[in-house]
Simulated assay, not measured.
Amino acid sequence: MIPPVEPIVRADAIARVSFERSDPVRMARFLVDFGFVPLAPPAEGRQYFRGCGPASYCVEVIAGTHDVFLGFALSARSRDDLHALARFERRGLGPAEGPGGGERLRLHDPDGHRIDLLWGAETLSPLSVREPLAAVNLPNAATRINRPVRSEPAPAPVFRIGHVVLQTPRFGEMMDWYRTRFGFLASDIATIPDGTPVLGFFRFDRGEEPADHHSLALLAGPDARLLHVSAETIDLDAIGQGQQHLRAQGWNHHWGIGRHVLGSQIFDYWKDNAGDEWEHYADGDLMTADYPTGFHPLSRAGLWAWGDDLPDSMRPPGPLPADAPAQARAIIEALSAAPRPWLR
Score class of each variant (00 low, 15 high):
residue 284 G to H: 04
residue 253 H to Y: 10
residue 240 G to S: 08
residue 254 H to G: 11
residue 234 I to T: 09
residue 260 H to L: 02
residue 260 H to I: 05
residue 267 F to G: 03
residue 253 H to M: 13
residue 250 G to V: 01
residue 220 A to V: 06
residue 236 L to W: 15
residue 233 T to H: 04
residue 285 D to F: 13
residue 261 V to C: 09
residue 272 D to P: 00
residue 251 W to D: 01
residue 224 A to P: 15
residue 291 Y to Q: 12
residue 237 D to T: 15
residue 283 D to N: 06
residue 251 W to Q: 04
residue 247 R to M: 11
residue 234 I to F: 04
residue 270 W to E: 02
residue 219 L to H: 08
residue 255 W to N: 03
residue 227 L to R: 08
residue 220 A to C: 09
residue 239 I to T: 02
residue 269 Y to C: 05
residue 288 T to N: 12
residue 237 D to V: 15
residue 235 D to N: 05
residue 252 N to T: 15
residue 216 L to K: 03
residue 269 Y to A: 02
residue 272 D to F: 10
residue 284 G to E: 02
residue 245 H to S: 13
residue 276 D to R: 03
residue 230 S to N: 12
residue 240 G to A: 09
residue 251 W to N: 04
residue 251 W to A: 06
residue 291 Y to F: 14
residue 234 I to S: 02
residue 280 H to P: 00
residue 254 H to L: 09
residue 232 E to C: 09
residue 280 H to F: 14
residue 266 I to H: 05
residue 230 S to C: 11
residue 277 E to K: 07
residue 231 A to T: 06
residue 273 N to K: 06
residue 255 W to S: 02
residue 287 M to D: 15
residue 254 H to V: 12
residue 249 Q to T: 07
residue 291 Y to N: 13
residue 276 D to Y: 12
residue 233 T to M: 03
residue 235 D to L: 05
residue 228 H to E: 10
residue 251 W to R: 06
residue 290 D to S: 09
residue 285 D to G: 08
residue 278 W to A: 04
residue 257 I to D: 00
residue 272 D to E: 05
residue 229 V to P: 00
residue 262 L to S: 10
residue 292 P to W: 06
residue 248 A to P: 07
residue 273 N to M: 07
residue 261 V to F: 04
residue 258 G to W: 08
residue 236 L to S: 05
residue 249 Q to M: 14
residue 283 D to G: 10
residue 287 M to T: 15
residue 268 D to M: 03
residue 245 H to Y: 10
residue 231 A to C: 06
residue 263 G to M: 02
residue 226 L to G: 05
residue 271 K to F: 07
residue 277 E to T: 15
residue 286 L to M: 11
residue 270 W to M: 09
residue 240 G to E: 01
residue 279 E to P: 14
residue 276 D to H: 11
residue 270 W to D: 01
residue 263 G to R: 00
residue 230 S to Q: 09
residue 288 T to F: 10
residue 223 D to A: 12
residue 266 I to R: 06
